Amino acid sequence: MQVIIFEMNSFVSVVVPFTACGLSADEIGKKDVPASVPFWIVDDSTLPVDIPQDAWELDTEQMGTPAGYGGTYTPAEKSND
C-alpha cells in the first residue's frame, strides 16, 4: 500500500490515503499535507517497523524529488456533459 510521508517541525508524519474518496494519493497529499511542506509517496513496506515513529528521520536528499507540496490541491472543474 502507498502512503504519504512528510516531515514538519522535526517530526515525520504518515498519511494513509483513502483513495476510495475519488482522489489519487498525489491529490490527497496536496490537499492534506500542510501548505508548502514537501511530501513523498512511498510503499508502506519501506517504513521502519523496529524504530518508534517519533525517532524517524527523513533523508530528503536520498528520497529525491518530492511527489508534491502540501496546500497545492486544486479541485478539477466539473464538466457540464
Rank of each mutant, 00 (worst) to 15 (best):
Q2D: 15
Q2W: 02
V3P: 10
I4T: 07
I4Q: 02
I4F: 03
I5C: 09
I5W: 04
I5E: 02
F6D: 05
E7F: 03
E7W: 03
E7D: 09
M8R: 15
N9G: 09
N9M: 14
N9P: 00
S10G: 02
F11I: 12
V12K: 04
S13H: 14
S13F: 13
V14A: 02
V14S: 03
V15K: 11
V16C: 09
V16K: 07
V16T: 14
V16S: 10
V16P: 00
P17Y: 00
P17H: 02
P17W: 00
P17E: 00
P17N: 05
P17M: 06
F18R: 14
F18D: 15
F18G: 11
F18A: 14
T19H: 01
C21G: 11
G22L: 09
L23P: 04
L23D: 02
L23G: 02
A25E: 10
A25D: 13
A25W: 03
D26V: 07
D26R: 13
D26A: 10
D26T: 12
E27Y: 04
E27R: 10
I28E: 01
G29P: 04
G29C: 08
K31H: 08
K31Q: 14
K31C: 07
D32C: 13
D32S: 13
P34R: 13
P34G: 07
P34K: 12
P34A: 13
A35E: 14
A35R: 15
S36L: 11
V37I: 15
P38G: 06
F39Q: 06
F39P: 00
F39S: 09
F39W: 01
I41Q: 01
V42K: 06
D43K: 14
D43Y: 10
D43P: 08
D43L: 14
D44V: 08
D44L: 07
D44S: 14
D44F: 02
T46K: 14
T46M: 13
L47K: 05
L47D: 04
V49M: 12
V49S: 11
D50F: 10
P52R: 09
Q53M: 14
D54S: 11
D54L: 07
D54M: 06
A55M: 13
A55F: 11
A55H: 12
W56I: 04
E57F: 05
Q62P: 00
Q62Y: 05
M63F: 07
G64H: 03
G64V: 06
T65G: 00
P66F: 02
A67V: 00
A67P: 02
Y69F: 15
Y69C: 01
Y69R: 12
G70H: 07
G70F: 05
G70T: 07
G70N: 07
G71N: 10
G71H: 10
T72I: 04
T72D: 06
Y73S: 03
Y73M: 04
T74N: 11
T74I: 15
P75E: 12
A76R: 14
E77H: 05
K78I: 09
S79E: 13
N80F: 10
N80M: 09
N80C: 03
D81Y: 08
D81T: 06
